[in-house]
Design a protein around this nucleic acid. Structure first.
Lengths: 228, 228
DNA sequence: TTATAATTTTAGACTATTCTAAATTCCTGT
DNA sequence: ACAGGAATTTAGAATAGTCTAAAATTATAA
């Protein structure tokens, strides 16, 4: 417990956790892009984290990294902070859903366990964040969510928006304007295989909307068995 | 405005502001003691801050430093953050008055202007902090408070507790147990010139309490013209 | 007023994080 | 199977902040 983890290290671990959703091993280049630092800096850092005691990363030269259990624990702690803070900023201080991310990115590193607990209590121990993502539990379990990407849905299928990426305020305002918020139900009307565009209709709305990969890769859904 | 001020620099400026209440020029040694760093580190830092553009400190070798107007502005910004956050933690999250300081010391550096404004609004733009100290206004004016130290009061005088130092949780719990909280009225009963002990009675209480310099130097009061 | 003590400053070094540029390794396509 | 290009790693350096030990300055006090 008593390890001294810098904000920078926390950012690396959190980002590697996110990127691990895509690939088994996360490459130096992916991390560098995501964190806006040079690949050389990433190599330095991951080598350091892999030789910590206990190691936070499992690193194989030229093959990228995977988080160790220890690394996962730290990442989940920060992700829990982040999502609780986002919800708190919205519920208690009236932030809009596109404003919360930047503030949470700074606060997540400095709050105490006590702060975390009190915020969770005020919010009623929420299971999901403002953008739909699950919040790791106090004992750092990440609930399974049986979701898929909107990208992979096809005509005739029905679904409900589960969660969206929270890091781009413009994108979030766009989604909200379209009604693409967690909980919104929809049916797929058409799919265009050449550009991967999806045409869908939100339940309760007449108009159809067409979404390209810039959107469909950023939105996670639950597929429903029938229209409801 | 767009200067990049590190947390460390903010801590130096805040501390120098506090110490400036005592002396005109603040010495290297005082800062080193207060921040728990070596005198050599302080010399390095104050030389740097005095040669910033614009300078944050006015520094004369071997004679200590004073804040420039620019330095004062930054210090007041952080002090405003600190005191708003302390109040917020108490009012909204139920922290006790001895718990708030450590948390505020970390949060004060990372909150945005937006956060500051929203918290101030939720709290109703308070003028005084949890421990009685004035809160700098949004435009960074520090309200005058016409107070003196409890230390300097003498028998027959009456007063009201204005504010107390917030940085020692044990001390704060002790004060609370004694009823020595901002707003409490009292009369001085006796003064012992050899040990500087003061005997006083809180209004509404029969029992008298004796306080030494360890307490009376840490408590600020408003002197009242008559008992009320 | 001069020696001694206290304080402050300088010098040199360490850690964390970052960078650029050069070297190395891996992968892919012919 | 190997040449070229892409990705990664190494090497060397910068900055912010800290330290200890030594040198310099100021203050004290006989």
């Amino acid at each position: 417990m008593g390890r001294l983890i810098s904000d920078t290290v926390e950012d690396y671990l959190k980002m590697i956790f996110d990127l691990s959703a895509e690939t088994d091993r996360v490459s130096t280049g992916m991390i560098a892009d995501a964190l806006n630092v040079s690949p050389a800096s990433v190599t330095d850092m991951i080598q350091r984290l892999a030789t910590e005691d206990p190691p936070l990363l499992d690193y194989i030269k030229h093959q990228g990294v995977a988080l160790t259990d220890e690394g996962i624990k730290i990442a989940l702690e920060i992700i829990r902070h982040h999502r609780l803070i986002e919800l708190f900023l919205h519920e208690v201080l009236g932030y809009s859903w596109d404003q919360v991310h930047a503030e949470a990115d700074r606060l997540e590193h400095v709050i105490s366990e006590d702060f975390e607990e009190r915020v969770a209590a005020v919010l009623g121990d929420p299971l999901r964040g403002l953008h739909g993502k699950p919040i790791p539990t106090a004992s750092l379990e990440m609930p399974d969510q049986n979701t898929s990407y909107l990208l992979d849905m096809r005509p005739e299928q029905h679904g409900v928006i589960h969660s969206v990426n929270d890091d781009d305020p413009d994108f979030l305002r766009y989604l909200e304007a379209q009604g693409l918020v967690p909980g919104a139900k929809f049916s797929i009307v058409d799919f265009s295989p050449y550009d991967n565009n999806l045409r869908l209709r939100l339940s309760g709305q007449d108009q159809e909307i067409v979404l390209g990969m810039g959107v469909t890769t950023q939105v996670q859904v639950e597929v429903l068995d029938f229209e409801s």
